[in-house]
């Protein structure tokens, strides 16, 4: 479950225009992508959104390999989705679903690749602070979201590892051989992260 170095260091140091774009706009871009993908089913609009996100990615001079990474780690999943939608719906519908998924992943990638974690956390804290009088704890909220974002590349990486391990034992691509270890890995990861934070007294309620 280790050694997802290239996946975990999600932030790409740089000073591109996208790096300098205010966090709020990047958030809106991500949210907007999600909304459009959900609101407009069908291949054409989703393919357009996907194309737009890819153009932004390349225009910000982010490494093109980062576009391949999610596909490399998720191809099996994407393939299953594609096959299922094709069977249940149509080829175009299936392609639309996959295009929508990729558009959302790439849009999230744009945010994490060009925003340092600390900046992201500060942005989240600022966004949640007005809710403080309703009992929200902004620091805790930010930490949770921040760690969730961190865990996505980890989980993609572990999917990759587990598939290799299953293959090495001749288990092929049996969903059970893949899903179970990934789930166990995810639980272990969450637990380890929890312990790591507890070891520093972080992420707990402000007053106790």
């Amino acid at each position: 479950m280790r050694g997802h170095a290239h996946l975990i260091s999600a932030y790409v140091a740089g000073s591109s225009w996208l790096h300098r774009t205010p966090l709020l706009l990047k958030f809106l871009l991500l949210a907007g992508t999600g909304v459009v993908v959900l609101a407009l089913p069908g291949l054409l609009p989703r393919a357009l959104v996907l194309a737009a996100v890819v153009v932004i990615h390349l225009a910000a001079r982010l490494p093109a390999v980062r576009l391949l990474q999610p596909i490399r780690s998720m191809w099996l999943f994407l393939l299953v989705v594609l096959a299922y939608r094709w069977w249940a719906d149509s080829a175009a519908g299936a392609a639309g679903v996959v295009a929508g998924l990729l558009a959302c992943i790439y849009a999230a990638n744009l945010l994490t690749a060009t925003t340092e974690v600390q900046r992201l956390l500060d942005g989240l804290v600022a966004a949640v602070t007005p809710l403080r009088r309703f009992g929200a704890d902004p620091e805790r909220f930010a930490l949770t979201i921040g760690l969730m974002l961190r865990s996505i590349p980890f989980l993609l990486g572990s999917l990759h590892d587990v598939r290799d391990a299953a293959r090495a034992r001749g288990l092929g691509a049996s969903p059970r051989a893949v899903v179970q270890p990934v789930l166990i890995g995810a639980v272990a990861y969450a637990r380890q992260t929890g312990d790591a934070l507890a070891a520093r007294g972080l992420g707990e309620k402000a007053a106790d």
């Binding site: 280790r2 974690v117 600390q118 992260t193 312990d195 790591a196 070891a199 007294g201």
Partner: peptide, 26 residues
């Protein structure tokens, strides 16, 4: 517990279990 953990910090054998961010600075 939370108040205790603010006083008592824990160092694990394996630093990779301890470091949650990608770089020492972060």
């Amino acid at each position: 517990g939370a108040a205790v953990r603010r006083r008592v910090a824990f160092v694990f054998t394996d630093p990779l279990s301890q470091l949650v961010m990608p770089t020492p600075l972060e």
